[in-house]
Deep mutational scan, measured.
Amino acid sequence: MSIQHFRVALIPFFAAFCLPVFAHPETLVKVKDAEDQLGARVGYIELDLNSGKILESFRPEERFPMMSTFKVLLCGAVLSRVDAGQEQLGRRIHYSQNDLVEYSPVTEKHLTDGMTVRELCSAAITMSDNTAANLLLTTIGGPKELTAFLHNMGDHVTRLDRWEPELNEAIPNDERDTTMPAAMATTLRKLLTGELLTLASRQQLIDWMEADKVAGPLLRSALPAGWFIADKSGASERGSRGIIAALGPDGKPSRIVVIYTTGSQATMDERNRQIAEIGASLIKHW
């Protein structure tokens, strides 16, 4: 067993022997300050990975656009099909120029040879490739089937209704393509630590998230040396920005953090900075 597999395998073990964890309200002060700075709603939740206990939250049951954070859930659904023998990570999918949508930095380079399901999930999570996400959605039956998968997991909140890039419209009070911080955190925890996926698939999912290449300005920018993070960011219209992450010190994840914001007129750089500052406060008061 590799060191990485050993780390994931021990998560349920540590759950039975973990020391108590305590929240620090200073982080919530920073979350509220971020709302003021951005002139927008901010949703935040911090969940103990082992016990599932909510350590701190702000607007945990308000809806926010999922943006590209849905791609982790999508690849979780794909992996569940792999575990059930209904899909193969090595299966090659061919597509055409007509399938390409905006922001497809990986898939646009493989029009001649296609990409495997594994490569598409990697592109969707690590590079947030939109065409990769659409091709993967097709393999499971579309957005409604992803919503059904989540319902079967016990998540009756999170929903995907449209494809890339339309799902990023982020219209106020529109429940399409939205989640709540509490629902997303719970669902992510189930995918990473529960029995829904095999150990190999849980490890694959967290490996893809750990290799995320487009979330550098967010929580990763505040991460001390030696800390672990596996994450997925998202951005969409109407000043929306978000990130879902499993992180912790000593090279292993111990908490789930979900941050969403929407309705801001601030620049992308400012939205990134506010999320990074929330992360810095979280780490300082860990």
Rank of each mutant, 00 (worst) to 15 (best):
A23V: 11
N168E: 07
M127F: 09
D48S: 05
L137G: 01
T116G: 02
D99T: 10
E210L: 05
N168V: 03
P165K: 03
R118Q: 15
T138S: 15
D231I: 03
R271Q: 14
P172Y: 11
L199E: 15
Q37L: 13
D33C: 06
S236Y: 01
V8T: 14
R81I: 03
L28V: 14
V29R: 11
S2G: 09
A16Q: 15
M180K: 11
L150Y: 03
F228N: 01
K30A: 10
Q265R: 13
M127A: 07
S254R: 08
E166L: 08
L19M: 12
M67L: 12
E277Q: 11
N98E: 14
D212E: 04
G85A: 10
A185T: 08
N130C: 04
E46R: 01
V214R: 05
L89V: 04
T178R: 00
L47T: 08
F17C: 11
S281R: 08
G90A: 14
L38Y: 08
E35R: 00
R81M: 07
E145G: 14
P181H: 00
P143A: 02
I243E: 01
D113V: 08
L73R: 04
V214K: 07
A276D: 07
L191V: 05
M268A: 06
V214M: 11
D269F: 09
V82C: 11
M127N: 07
A40G: 15
L136R: 00
R176T: 04
A225D: 14
Q4V: 12
V82Y: 05
A225H: 14
D129R: 00
V42R: 00
K144W: 08
I243S: 00
S201R: 06
Y260H: 00
E195V: 04
D48V: 01
A84S: 13
L223M: 13
D161E: 03
K213H: 09
G242Y: 00
P253S: 04
L19R: 12
E175N: 12
T131R: 00
M268K: 06
D269L: 09
T178E: 00
F17G: 10
L223N: 00
E108P: 05
G194N: 09
A222L: 04
S240G: 15
T187C: 03
G194H: 08
A266G: 08
A225Y: 11
P12C: 13
R220V: 01
V117T: 06
N168T: 06
P20K: 15
A183E: 06
I283S: 01
T187L: 04
S80E: 14
D207R: 13
S57V: 06
L197M: 10
